[in-house]
Design a protein around this nucleic acid. Structure first.
Lengths: 249, 249
DNA sequence: CGATGGGTTGAGCTTGATCAAACACTGTGG
DNA sequence: CCACAGTGTTTGATCAAGCTCAACCCATCG
């Protein structure tokens, strides 16, 4: 059940047998959530860390006027709230965007990792820092880029993350979110997202229909997005010296 | 020399003698930088972690068209690049905004902490997560808030961070950055920053002149900013049950 | 079949950008 | 002490990207 996390941490370091055993032995309870359900809400302090086993979720936070900002997407293998082991309470919420299965890793397991499994602790550190880097670059995206580049950048990020996670083989991925959802993540109105998507389609960069995104021209898309995957800090075994993704067969 | 870091970590946990000794024993070399110098540049992989001992710095990243986004401010006691101990290279740069003194903590010291000082490791985890939370909320700020609320929010954040770090007593702090700098952080043009500042002054919320910011009406400023300090995950000993800062004498 | 949720289109508006010029402050050298 | 250069702030006029509001279309589903 904890295997998606193992897969992810393996990108950082080769885990040893006893470390894998330790993680596997952690008493993870599973929970199934429907689209729209909150995995954790702002202000809560749950006794376990949630791991996405399957499905999509997003970090989000609402302002008093009801408008919501999505601050990141979570996919298979991502930890939602390592936070709660150390910080008092959640400062944002996490919501399922599809039917989602989460695993709940008790806080003590995390504590044991930090105390007795320094290599695992290091791997957790690593995943935290990647999350932080992604968050920082989201600032860049929302702050500096045009609407078109913003959408393109998000698509590039998702494509690479899915490829690295081994969830897709080609350039096609499931995209459960509506145009309004995209707007929440990119700080654009649904109407404008719609127009931008049309432009990207016209340029022959993407196909997006019936909840499925195909990146037709990855290089072209990266160009309009000014996308540089360095910030995702990919597994060194998966990228070449120029930081480009190697196609493992 | 490493004391500003100690001060900061103490907000998370009471450190034990041998932990303090260990940190103090780390062979930190000091370095002095002038305004505008880069502490680390994107793409580099320095052999040591930089700690701000005195002065202001910012995380920043430039787009190909020359426009720059500031993704966070660093003050006394902040670690610039824990990243490099685990990630391959910097995905953004760090620039001194004033004359700044940094300490360089060798990578091995960090590694030893993770391996042999779990409580210190935990404290580092904590500071990383706070940084991440700040970055996430910066997304909110740039993405969702109006220009006026954005400026107000940044000022609130800085005020609280300086108060918590014990760098100021009242509501006045040094603000070395120009209006253009503020614009880079908030994704607004210098001209617009100027007009917003005038409005905040007119409302009697702030005084900002000759590199010095005084928050005249903290409550009012928090209101226009919709500021909620939860995301800064302050020392529990410094906040009351409602998350408000307690004035320690 | 109607209802519902999402996608698409159009018209007009607003926030903040752009461009350009003037002004204020600081420090320098004559 | 003044001229000046340089950096930062202020003001005004114009412009555009993206927002708002409103209608309409289309697919899916009970």
């Amino acid at each position: 059940m904890i295997d998606p996390l193992l897969e992810k941490l393996k990108h950082y370091t080769d885990l040893e047998k006893h470390e894998i055993r330790m993680l596997r032995a952690a008493p993870t309870q599973e929970k199934r959530l429907e689209k729209g359900d909150y995995i954790i809400k702002e202000g809560e302090n749950p006794p376990a860390v949630h791991l996405i086993i399957d499905g999509w979720a997003c970090r989000c936070k609402m302002l008093s006027d009801g408008r919501e900002q999505v601050m990141g997407y979570l996919i298979k293998g991502d930890l939602c709230d390592l936070h709660v082991t150390l910080l008092s309470r959640m400062d944002h919420s996490i919501r399922a965007m599809t039917t989602t299965t989460v695993g709940m890793v008790p806080e003590e397991s995390i504590n044991r990792i930090i105390e007795d499994f320094p290599r695992l602790a290091r791997a957790l550190f690593w995943s935290l820092m990647v999350d932080e880097a992604i968050a920082r670059h989201w600032i860049l995206n929302v702050g500096l880029r045009s609407a078109e580049a913003r959408v393109a950048h998000l698509f590039c990020e998702l494509l690479v993350r899915f490829q690295v996670a081994g969830l897709i083989k080609g350039n096609t991925l499931e995209m459960p979110m509506t145009q309004a959802n995209l707007g929440e993540a990119l700080s654009l109105t649904p109407v404008h997202i719609n127009r931008v998507l049309q432009r990207l389609r016209q340029k022959g960069l993407i196909i997006l229909a019936r909840k499925e995104l195909t990146v037709v021209d990855p290089e072209g898309l990266k160009e309009v997005a000014e996308f540089d995957a360095v910030y995702l800090h990919l597994d060194k075994r998966l990228v070449n010296h120029k930081g480009e993704l190697i196609n493992k067969k």
